[in-house]
C-alpha cells in the first residue's frame, strides 16, 4: 500500500509535506477554533487563490519569469490578507466579523478577474483548488519544512501567552501580555500555513484541516494540551490515510483527507455518546 511512496520522489515530497501540514495546521487550528476565528482560515485561503492566479498570470504574460513558484505569491497575498483583516477589524470595532467576508469576497473577485484576464490558464488550476499528489516539488517541501519549524518555535515560545489570550483576553491585557502583537504574529503564521498547505489539501479545503481535527478532539478532551495532542494526531491520520487513498483511487487528496477527518469526527461523536450512556447506566446500577 505504501510501496509507491518509498519508490517515487514526487510521492515522497507529497507525503513529507502532508505529514508536516498534518502537524502544523491542527496545531494552529486549536487556537483558531477556541478563539472562534474559524472563518479567518477560509478568508485567507481564498486570498491565497488570488495570489496563485496573479502568479500564473504573470508567468503567462511577462516573459522571463517562467520559473516563478505560484506558492510564493500565494503566501505573499495570504500574509497581506491577514494584515488587511486586522486593519478592517480595527476599522469596524463593533462589526469586527465584517473583515472576513470583505477579504473572502474581495479575494475571490480579484482571483476571477485575474483568471479571466489570462484567458484561462495552461496550468491545472484544479490541483490548487483541491490538492494534488503530484504537484508538490522538492523545493515546496523544504519551504513547508521551514515554515513548520518557525511555527513550532513560535507556538512553543508564546504558548502561555496564546493560551491566556484565547481563554480570557481581558485577563491577558491586565497580565501585561502584548495581545495585539501576539495576535498579529499568530495570524501571520496562519496565513503562511494556509498558503503552504494548499498544494496537498487544496485552497477550498485547507480550512477543514485546521478545524475538523480540532472539532473531533474537542468531543473527548478535558485539557488544552490533550486537545492539541489529539488534534495533531487526528490531523496526521487524516493526511496520511487521505494521501494514500487518493493516490490509489486517482482522486485529488483534498477530498479524501477531508472525508477521513469527517469520519474521525463521526467516530469521536459516537464515542462520546456511548461513554455518556455507559456513565448513566453505571450510575443507575
Amino acid at each position: 500500500m505504501f510501496e509507491a511512496f518509498f519508490r517515487y520522489d514526487f510521492l515522497q515530497n507529497a507525503a513529507m509535506t502532508g505529514i508536516l501540514i498534518g502537524l502544523v495546521a491542527p496545531l494552529l487550528g486549536v487556537f483558531i477554533v477556541v478563539r472562534r476565528l474559524s472563518l479567518i482560515a477560509d478568508a485567507l485561503s481564498h486570498i491565497t487563490l488570488t495570489g496563485i492566479a496573479a502568479s500564473l498570470l504573470l508567468e503567462k504574460k511577462v516573459s522571463g519569469i517562467n520559473d516563478l513558484n505560484p506558492v510564493f505569491l500565494g503566501m505573499a497575498f495570504s500574509v497581506l490578507g491577514a494584515v488587511l483583516i486586522e486593519w478592517i477589524r480595527k476599522l469596524y470595532k463593533n462589526y469586527e466579523e465584517l473583515a472576513i467576508p470583505i477579504i473572502l469576497s474581495g479575494g475571490i473577485g480579484l482571483g476571477v478577474l485575474l483568471i479571466s484576464l489570462a484567458d484561462g490558464f495552461n496550468t491545472d488550476l484544479f490541483s490548487y483548488l483541491f490538492g494534488s499528489v503530484a504537484a508538490v516539488s522538492r523545493s515546496n517541501m523544504w519551504t513547508v519544512l521551514f515554515i513548520t519549524c518557525i511555527v513550532i518555535i513560535i507556538v512553543f515560545l508564546f504558548y502561555k501567552e496564546l493560551f491566556v489570550l484565547s481563554f480570557d483576553e481581558e485577563h491577558a491585557t491586565v497580565s501585561g501580555v502584548k495581545g495585539k502583537w501576539i495576535h498579529l504574529l499568530f495570524i501571520l503564521m496562519v496565513a503562511l500555513v494556509i498558503a503552504s498547505s494548499m498544494q496537498v489539501v487544496g485552497i477550498l479545503l485547507v480550512s477543514a484541516l485546521m478545524t475538523l481535527p480540532v472539532a473531533s478532539a474537542l468531543r473527548i478532551t478535558k485539557s488544552f494540551k490533550q486537545t492539541i495532542v489529539l488534534s495533531v494526531l487526528f490531523g496526521e491520520i487524516s493526511v496520511i490515510v487521505g494521501l494514500v487513498s487518493a493516490y490509489h483511487l486517482g482522486v485529488p487528496p483534498g477530498g479524501t483527507i477531508v472525508m477521513i477527518a469527517i469520519l474521525i469526527l463521526i467516530l469521536t461523536t459516537a464515542l462520546k455518546k456511548v461513554s455518556i450512556q455507559f456513565f448513566w447506566t453505571k450510575r443507575r446500577a
Partner: peptide
C-alpha cells in the same frame, strides 16, 4: 466565559502566572 473551552482547572490557574513569569 466560553464554557466549552477545552482547559483543565489546573491549566486555567497556572495561566495566572503569565504576568509573574513574563515572556
Amino acid at each position: 466565559f466560553n464554557a466549552g473551552f477545552p482547559a483543565s482547572v489546573l491549566e486555567v490557574v497556572k495561566s495566572g502566572l503569565v504576568s509573574r513569569l513574563g515572556m
